[in-house]
């Protein structure tokens, strides 16, 4: 991956909860190649959304501490040192974001058009008339019929799928280099989800935008992404090409995650499960592997020493025993 557009190094985010400092994201590093789609998967509370929102600087400052050693580079330009005002020129313009809830992420008291035009005008010197035309064009591109009429409508007049299209239009109207999509289809029905995923694939080919897709749905990951990063309890546990991960998962969590989904194309007698639940931020194991309590392959070493992210070929995996798990299965 020579041409990386976004490079995140050592992203570390802490929250202050009830006067206690808790770690939400720990040493997340990745590179996003130009025109590539990176999927971030994990269960709720694993830090995938926090990682994304902290790249966008959308977390509340009052109780969030982003570590100083964090480096986020967009096209070789360091973003963490920018002032808030300078960052506003980046947010929405060069990196933009689609949120999970299309129902709540649009402002209900303004028309679609007003919200879209505001977006364009805050980043480009452009007359209102021209901005209007740009927006209509964009709405047509995301497959909204009668776009001109829709510009004058309010969010409540649109269905969920349509609203998500408007969100995508809003995110793409400034031609961003990076698009962060945080569970863009989770709130939608399957047939609508299929429409939106197809749309995102098509737009990616047209605009060559790089996408970070955050989801918990392994099916969506398999269909849309080029590479996958699996997160657990604030850490990256595995990162590789999507095909590699699905064919040969190495981290016990990834293995468990893939086994625990019912498959449509084969008959499953019984689902394999991962015991227990994700530790909450406050109960995070302080020493050792964060997955140890739920791991089938857990050994003494896992309790005492935190595994580092190891490189095995193109794979990055955070497990002491990655690659030779099989031998311990009978334990």
């Amino acid at each position: 991956m020579e041409n990386s557009i976004l490079e995140v190094k050592n992203l570390k985010v802490d929250f202050i909860m009830d006067g206690e400092r808790v770690n939400a994201v720990h040493e997340v590093s990745f590179k996003l190649g130009k025109g590539r789609t990176l999927g971030i998967v994990g269960e709720s509370g694993c830090g995938k959304s926090v990682s994304a929102t902290s790249i966008m600087r959308l977390l509340p400052k009052i109780n969030t501490i982003v570590d100083d050693c964090t480096s986020i580079k967009l096209d070789d330009e360091e973003l963490t040192t920018l002032s808030d005002k300078e960052f506003q020129k980046v947010r929405g313009n060069r990196i933009s974001m689609i949120f999970q809830e299309p129902m709540t992420s649009l402002n209900p008291v303004y028309t679609i058009g007003k919200q879209l035009i505001e977006m364009v005008q805050s980043h480009q010197k452009i007359s209102k008339k021209d901005a209007f035309e740009t927006c209509v064009e964009m709405l047509e591109k995301v497959g909204i019929p009668e776009a001109r009429k829709r510009m004058k409508e309010y969010p409540h007049q649109l269905s969920g799928g349509m609203r998500q299209r408007v969100m995508i239009a809003m995110a793409l109207v400034c031609n961003p280099e990076v698009l962060i999509a945080d569970e863009p289809t989770t709130a939608l029905d399957v047939t609508i989800q299929a429409q939106i995923l197809e749309l995102m694939n098509k737009l990616k080919e047209d605009t060559k935008t790089s996408i970070i897709l955050i989801t918990h749905d392994m099916g969506v990951v398999a269909e849309v992404t080029d590479e996958v990063m699996v997160m657990y309890a604030g850490e990256v546990v595995e990162h590789d090409d999507v095909k590699e991960i699905f064919h040969n998962p190495m981290h016990p969590y990834t293995i468990g995650l893939l086994d625990s989904i019912p498959k449509l194309n084969q008959n499953t007698e019984r689902l394999l499960t991962i015991d227990g639940t994700v530790p909450t931020l406050k109960n995070m194991p302080k020493v050792g592997c964060r997955f140890a309590d739920r791991c089938h392959y857990c050994q003494d070493l896992c309790r005492t020493e935190s595994p580092a992210l190891k490189k095995v070929g193109t794979r990055e995996v955070r497990c002491h025993f990655a690659g030779n798990l099989k031998a311990k299965e009978d334990k």
Binding site: T191, Q193, A194, Q195, G219, A222, L264, N265
Partner: peptide, 25 residues
């Protein structure tokens, strides 16, 4: 048929012909 084809399958090797339904319910 459309509903079945719309479900994303967690399998990277299988590329299916998808029936994309137009419009909303």
């Amino acid at each position: 048929q459309a509903l079945l084809s719309a479900i994303p399958i967690p399998d990277v090797d299988q590329k299916r012909n998808r029936i994309i339904l137009q419009g909303d319910v």
